[in-house]
Each structure stands twice: as C-alpha cells, then as structure tokens.
Computed example of a mutant assay.
Amino acid sequence: MGVVSVVDHVPAFSRGDGLPEPEIHDVLRNERRRAALQFLRERAGEAHINELTTAIVHREADQESDTKSLRQSVYSSLHQTHIPKLEGADVVAYDEDSNVVRLTTNSRAVDRYLHLRPAHGVSWGEYYQLFAVTSLLVTLLVEMEVAVFAAIDPLPVLTVALVVLALSVGYQLWTRRWIYVRSLFS
C-alpha cells in the first residue's frame, strides 16, 4: 500500500490555486448566491444566516408577496442549497453552531467575476477611474491655460486632487477594514 499525500485529495481551488473558472460561473449562476455574496461583502465578510435571509427577502419581495412564505423559502434554499454550494467551493465557511456565514479568502477569486454594485450604484473602481480622468483633464486644462482655467494656479488643483484621493482611499480602507484584517489571519 503506497503513501497517499493529503494534498492529493484536496481540490485545486483550496490549495491556493484559486477557483477554476467553470466553478466560479457555477457558483455565480444563481441570483440568491450572488445576493448572499454581495450582502456578506457589505457586512465585512460575515453575517448570521437570519440577517442574510432578511436581506435577500427585502431584495426579492414586492408589495404583493407573502413575506412570511418568501422568508421561509429563502431560508430553506440558503440552508439546504446555496450555502452548501458556496461552502463546497470554499467561498464561504458556515458555522452551524452559531449560524454565522463567513467569506473565505477564496471569495476574492469570485469578486473578479462578480461586479459588486454598492447601493449608490458606483463601484470603487468606477469612482477611481472617473476621479483620475477628471483630475487629469482639469490639470491639463490648467497647465494649457485654456479659457477659465488660465487664472487657476496648478498647485492648489493638484493639492486638492491628492487630498480627495487620500480621503477616498482612507474611507474605503476604513469601511472594509475587517475584511482586510480577517484575511491577514486566515
């Protein structure tokens, strides 16, 4: 009988190779799984299953729906189907004792395919792109002394742009601090 390495029995995605693309698409195929991942991202990477259920019910409910039966349906599907699917792909970890769902470090592989939209509709990536283009355009107009921009000194323009950039990065890091801290220790 030969020696079998433990690594031989571990799927590729949990050895740090990242999730295979077909697995990511399979995980993201369902709207409730996408909603669960988005809610967990907004909640610093973890939430009680009841909070997760409530968030998805609010997302799916309309004025005519029976929220009690919808809540039951969402809870059951999360508990029986979606969380096990996400857990099987090592995207979340579910603690059955505390009923807490946590994102794993592997969830970052899914983020590349899941364009998460915050409530206000603009992602951080889009914000930084818009900010960079606007700052560059204003700086060029000031330097080229075009029309109204000729009277503006370039130093305050650049200073304001850098301060806004620093504040934006600081805010983003602060609001996502627990995700970053948790990823350091996992």
Rank of each mutant, 00 (worst) to 15 (best):
L78A: 12
P22Q: 07
R15T: 15
A147E: 14
W178M: 02
P154K: 07
H82W: 04
R33W: 05
P84G: 05
L158V: 09
V148S: 14
M144W: 15
R177L: 04
V138R: 12
P22A: 12
L70E: 11
L78E: 12
D95C: 06
M144C: 15
Y127R: 13
D17Q: 07
R32E: 06
V148I: 14
V57K: 06
A55D: 05
R176Q: 15
L158K: 09
V133D: 11
G18P: 01
L52Q: 04
D66Q: 13
R33D: 03
E23Y: 02
G18Y: 00
G88F: 03
L37C: 02
R32V: 07
T134N: 04
I179Q: 06
E51A: 15
V92Q: 05
Y128W: 05
Y127A: 14
L78H: 08
G121K: 09
T53D: 01
A44H: 12
L40D: 01
S73G: 04
S76M: 03
T134K: 03
A109V: 10
T81E: 06
T105F: 14
S168I: 07
V6W: 03
A44S: 14
V92A: 04
I56S: 02
L86M: 13
E42R: 10
E64I: 05
E96H: 03
L70K: 06
S76Y: 08
G18C: 00
F149E: 07
V160F: 15
E23L: 06
R108Y: 11
V74G: 10
Q63W: 07
E126F: 00
E31D: 12
R32L: 05
F39T: 02
T105K: 15
P154F: 11
A109K: 13
L167Q: 13
